[in-house]
Nucleic acid binder design. Structure first.
Length: 803
DNA sequence: CGATGACGAGCGGTC
DNA sequence: CTCGTCATCG
């Protein structure tokens, strides 16, 4: 029974997938292209390991980046075979770190009920710190300090590890140090700290490390290309390929990733981890999954051709058995408004042809672009859903409620204290709070404990607030989570405050939804009926138990991240503490309209991992996509190209690429060239819906036939050879007269978009766009000191600047 | 103390 | 343009 024939699991897999699933227990790197069945391989691998008896649930650790991916893995796994998911460590990096630190909080030097700061909390903690230490926020903007601190942690560096070369860095490191002390004092950890602290516990604590190395025979990692330095080092701790003086751990790391889909370098991801992994772990098995099951070949070839323009790839080419399918449609509009209108018209047509709205997605490079699309959809009464706004647990009213709840758990959480000390307003102003902070600082205690040191009217008001908290804490002691939250919402005055607010209905609704969220959390985590956490067996043996018999809904698998008992005492967290952890680690969904059949709007980043029948990639313009901040260096540009690759590979059947000649951005109309990425796509796969023409031709009366070629009279960085010859067939309704081939405009100056130039009056700037020819040639330049300007090249002297 | 207006800045975003 | 932060007035 335990050693069933694995064939059914592997049946239906292609040879590469099957090979990956059934690899021997040794380190392996799976290069899994977009749509190649990556998640399937990962989950089938786990199922296979379990079913063949090579590992028990307790011997497996599987790490992902998002809760969504972790959930999907669990859902698929439980569908494949009955398994006790609770015994397994499947979750996000941070979720698993949390679980680890709760269990080893003493070794980590943390209170067991430590609170987790999300990005917002972290920023406000830093702001508070800066104010207290009189940090010049002109020279050291809190956002930048946050970036610095997170960056240090992502690289595994404590303040003492940072190499200080200049005074600015010295000061930043000082603030980093102070920030750490503040967090430690308040018993809070940020996301980076979850990773770094658990890494250090593993590194410095031989028995703990050895324990986990022996326990986890198989470590599986999803989206390996997105790991940062610290995450890589963390994984190494669990597998420790070369620990001196210790026997080989004998476990296997199974890493799945795609270097072509690495789009998070900006937040510390290191594609280089893939190569490092192969070298340092002496990886014996590398398998490429190149068979794509998602897209028609016109779409796939478009993606392949684009990404082939990147250097430094591990090398991979997706193939498909699907037919050519429809050509990739390219549309050029006059304005962003027209672009949106055209999309709406196409969507209506698609809908008539039977495409569900939820199978249509609009992808854009930056969030600001969603507005014009939303307006058009709204006016056309087409339901839509925007991803990427504030999520449930990030909403202000929810954060306020959570702050009260956190103060019940930990009165010394100053961040939460400050958030709600005067919210709803209760007459405690900035002055009173400052007094309180002064007292707290001089006596080295928390704000909560400093209250007795403040005298006068301010003191009374604050004392009342603290008393309110204390009363709430006392009253809620024996309550269920639901009752606690209801009491807090009531006694804090939050509900009433938002009831009286002009447009506070949504907020009241959200607060009521918080009660529901807590209820369903309690149900899922099993706090209600069997309050005891399931025993975690060392090497797992509960294969025979079906998930149903454990009262788990297979459709709603749980992460079980907050239930880890204390390693020594076996004590588990209270439902409230567990819920607060859940709120911090899982920020929740962002829209309530999820159920409706709606067109999906999101950034390309947010689209990673998703797929749709029809995809619109919009705003394909120089400066926008590729984004101007990424255009100057090769790495930045290559990441933009990977981003475009991710966008293209989201589409199954139909793909639209559009760009606009003009676009409202930052309140002014910008003239953008079409994206250079168009020049990197295979002509044979494309179909141009609009006659190629330069911007000015749209405004000026046509002089018979089209002016200019596909590139119009725009200048580009490419050589004339990069300009593909016009060929019949890429016009949807060819009029029979091919346009004359484009000639490079004669400007007499060798400048191109993206280039840095120097102007005698305005200084240094970057060329955003070029327009016109000869005497009319103009350049749009973004000067670092003087902003964006249009300059006539016949007048202005622009000197190219070498970088 | 708390609500309203000027002002400046503006990629991507999981946990 | 549009949001978030700061400064001033009631």
């Amino acid at each position: 029974m335990l050693f069933e024939d694995p064939t059914p699991l592997v049946a239906g897999l292609n040879p590469e997938q099957a090979a990956a699933v059934t690899l021997p227990p040794e380190h392996a790197l799976i290069l899994a292209g977009a749509g190649s069945g990556k998640t399937r391989v990962l989950t089938t691998r786990i199922a296979w390991l379990l079913q063949s008896g090579q590992a028990g649930p307790g011997g497996i650790m599987a790490v992902t980046f998002t809760n969504k991916a972790a959930k999907e893995m669990m859902t698929r796994l439980t569908a494949m075979l009955p398994v006790n998911v609770r015994g397994m460590w499947i979750g996000t990096f941070h979720g698993l770190c949390n679980r680890f630190l709760r269990a080893h909080h003493q070794a980590a030097g943390l209170p067991q009920t430590f609170q987790i700061l999300d990005t917002q909390d972290q920023l406000s903690a830093i702001k508070r710190l800066c104010k207290q230490h009189n940090v010049d926020d002109e020279r050291f903007p809190p956002k930048q300090l946050q970036w610095f601190i997170s960056g240090c942690k992502e690289d595994g560096m404590r303040p003492r590890d940072v190499v200080v070369r200049d005074d600015e860095t010295r000061r930043k490191v000082e603030i980093y140090q102070l920030y750490e002390e503040q967090c430690q004092r308040e018993g809070v950890v940020d996301f980076g700290e979850l990773m770094l602290r658990s890494y250090e516990v593993l590194r410095d604590n031989d028995p703990i490390r050895v324990h986990y190395q022996r326990r986890f025979k198989h470590i599986l990692i999803d989206e390996f290309q997105d790991t940062n330095r610290l995450q890589y080092a963390w994984i190494k701790m669990f597998s420790s390929p070369h620990t001196e003086g210790l026997p080989p751990s004998g476990n296997a790391v199974f890493a799945v990733g795609d270097d072509d889909q690495s789009i998070y370098a900006f937040r510390g991801a290191r594609v280089g981890n893939m190569a490092d992994f192969v070298r340092e772990f002496q990886v014996k098995h590398q398998i490429k999954l190149e068979q794509n099951y998602r897209s028609a070949s016109n779409i796939l070839n478009t993606a392949n051709e684009l990404i082939s323009h990147n250097s430094r790839r591990l090398g991979k080419n997706l193939r498909t058995d699907a037919g050519a399918g429809e050509p990739v449609r390219v549309y050029e509009s006059v304005s962003d408004f027209a672009e949106a209108q055209w999309m709406v018209d196409e969507m209506k047509q698609l809908e008539r042809e039977g495409t569900p709205r939820s199978e249509m997605a609009v992808l854009y490079r930056s969030n600001a672009q969603s507005r014009v699309v939303e307006t058009a959809l709204f006016n056309a009464a087409i339901p839509y859903r925007v991803y990427g706004g504030l999520r449930f647990f990030e909403r202000a009213e929810i954060k306020h409620a959570l702050a009260y709840l956190r103060l019940l758990e930990n009165p010394h959480d100053d961040t939460s204290f400050l958030r709600v000390v005067n919210f709803p307003p209760r007459g405690i102003g900035a002055r009173s709070v400052e007094q309180l902070q002064d007292v707290a600082r001089s006596s080295g205690c928390s704000l909560h404990d400093a209250v007795s040191g403040v005298t006068g009217r301010a003191g009374t008001a604050i004392a009342n607030f603290v008393a309110l908290l204390d009363v709430m804490r006392e009253k809620t002691e024996a309550m269920t989570l639901k009752e606690i939250i209801e009491l807090v919402l009531d006694k804090s005055g939050l509900i009433e405050h938002f009831r009286n607010e002009r447009e506070g209905e949504d907020r009241v609704e959200n607060l009521e939804e918080l009660v529901n969220a807590a209820e369903s959390f309690v149900m899922q985590e099993g706090f209600g009926r069997d309050a005891v956490a399931l025993p975690v067996d060392e090497h797992g043996s509960s294969l025979s138990q079906s998930p149903v018999s454990q009262g788990l809904d297979p459709d709603a698998p749980v992460l079980n991240e907050s239930l880890a008992p204390d390693a020594e005492t076996g004590e588990t967290l209270s439902p409230l503490a567990a819920f607060l952890t859940h709120a911090a680690l899982e920020s929740g969904d962002n829209q309530a309209q999820a159920g409706q059949d709606a067109v999906q709007l999101m950034t390309v980043h947010a689209a990673k991992g998703l797929e749709f029948d029809c995809v619109f990639i919009t705003g394909l313009e120089e400066g926008l996509f590729p984004h101007e901040n990424s255009m100057s260096d090769r790495d930045g540009l290559e990441e933009e190209r990977r981003l475009m690759y991710v966008a293209i590979t989201r589409a199954r059947k139909r793909l639209y690429l559009s760009h606009s000649q003009t676009r409202m951005l930052h309140g002014q109309t910008r003239y953008n060239m079409k994206s250079r990425f168009f020049d990197e796509l295979p002509e044979a796969c494309l179909k141009w819906l609009t006659p190629p023409q330069p911007a000015w031709a749209a405004a000026a009366p046509s002089v018979g036939g089209w002016q200019g070629g596909r590139r119009g009279l725009y200048a580009t960085g490419g050589s004339p050879a990069a300009n593909p010859a016009w060929s019949p067939g890429f016009l949807s309704t060819g009029s029979g007269t091919p346009p004359p081939k484009a000639s490079e405009p004669d400007r007499g100056v060798d400048i191109r978009t993206g280039q840095k130039v120097f102007h005698n009056k305005f200084g240094e700037g970057k060329v955003l766009a070029l327009e016109g020819a000869g005497a009319d040639a103009r350049a749009q330049v973004n000067f670092s000191r003087h902003g964006v300007k249009w300059l006539a090249l016949s007048v202005a002297k622009l000197t190219p600047v070498d970088e």
